[in-house]
Computed example of a mutant assay.
Amino acid sequence: MARTKKPKETDPTKMGRRQQLVETYRMTREVDPRIGLWMLVAFLVGAAIGFGLFWLFPGSGTFGLIMAIIGGLLFGLLAMMIVFSRRAQRAAFNRLEGQLGAAARALTMLRRGWKTDEMIGFTKQQDMVHRVVGPPGIVLVAEGNPNRLKPLLASERRKHERVAAETPIHEVIVGHDEGQVRLPKLVKHVQKLGRQVKPAEITDILNRLKALDAQRPKVPLPRGPVPTSMKGMRGNMRGR
């Protein structure tokens, strides 16, 4: 009796670490065909630097050569993984750009200490506002048509000011125009808004926002395939 072939796992959260890396490389190569070449160059340069540094350490003969080779391999692998991580992240953003809810996907890369709520405000034309609560206070992140987003952001600001009047509120519009933030730079932009509230205050802010969110209609954010590389980048940023 023929054995049925087990279907390939496609959910990144259920993949092993090795399988995630392979899938991330595959998806990155679709966007960045030269990723393999860049990784090879990074490995060779890192290995040369590592070999040279360890060769200068006190020691001679076979032991010194072995240590230099090990140091070269370690430095080479480290350089290769750094290049892979950065180019995979860039490829993931390129895959997300232009998709509905792309900003919400990018915000999942924020590390611990941040609370993201997707699509707290929206229009019939699929413009949307997401909310991030963290060290800067409350950050309203909008994506869509700028003309429609302005009144939507103003409305959300008023709602949040009623329940958290003393909390700093920031507004960010994702896009390519002047005054907007491009998707690949969104996470860094949010992180650079500063540290204006303490961790204990964040807990209080979240409790205040629960009452506001309880009055909102529950509209699920349309889900598309999340690039595996985004999952990998988020795990790396959280230290897993």
Rank of each mutant, 00 (worst) to 15 (best):
T123G: 13
Q20L: 15
L153V: 04
G232P: 00
N207F: 11
R157K: 14
V132I: 06
L44S: 10
V190W: 01
R112C: 08
N94I: 13
Q180S: 08
K192P: 00
L193R: 02
E166M: 13
L149I: 09
F84W: 12
R162S: 11
A102K: 06
L53H: 06
V187G: 00
E171Y: 01
V187P: 00
R238W: 10
P151E: 01
M237Q: 08
A102H: 08
A103N: 01
H176T: 14
F54V: 09
G134V: 03
A42H: 00
L209S: 01
E161M: 10
A79G: 07
F75Y: 11
G72N: 03
V197W: 00
F57K: 08
N145W: 09
T62Q: 13
G121S: 09
A2V: 13
Q191E: 12
P199F: 01
A214E: 10
G76Q: 03
R86I: 13
M15Y: 00
D204G: 12
E118P: 10
P146E: 05
R86Y: 12
A104N: 11
W114H: 12
G64M: 05
M233Y: 14
E30S: 06
E30K: 11
R18W: 11
G50L: 11
T116K: 06
L110Y: 02
G98A: 02
D117N: 08
I66W: 13
L21G: 12
A142M: 10
A42L: 03
W114M: 10
W55E: 11
E201Q: 11
G46S: 02
E30L: 09
R18A: 15
G36I: 05
K150P: 09
E161Q: 10
A2W: 11
R157Q: 14
M80W: 10
S229A: 15
V45K: 06
A42Q: 05
T123L: 11
K192V: 02
G235Q: 15
P58Q: 03
A68S: 03
F51Y: 14
R95H: 03
L183E: 00
T228I: 15
A154Y: 04
M15Q: 06
R240E: 15
A88C: 13
M119C: 09
E143V: 10
V133I: 13
V181H: 01
R238E: 14
G113Y: 04
R34V: 12
G16W: 01
G224F: 04
P168A: 01
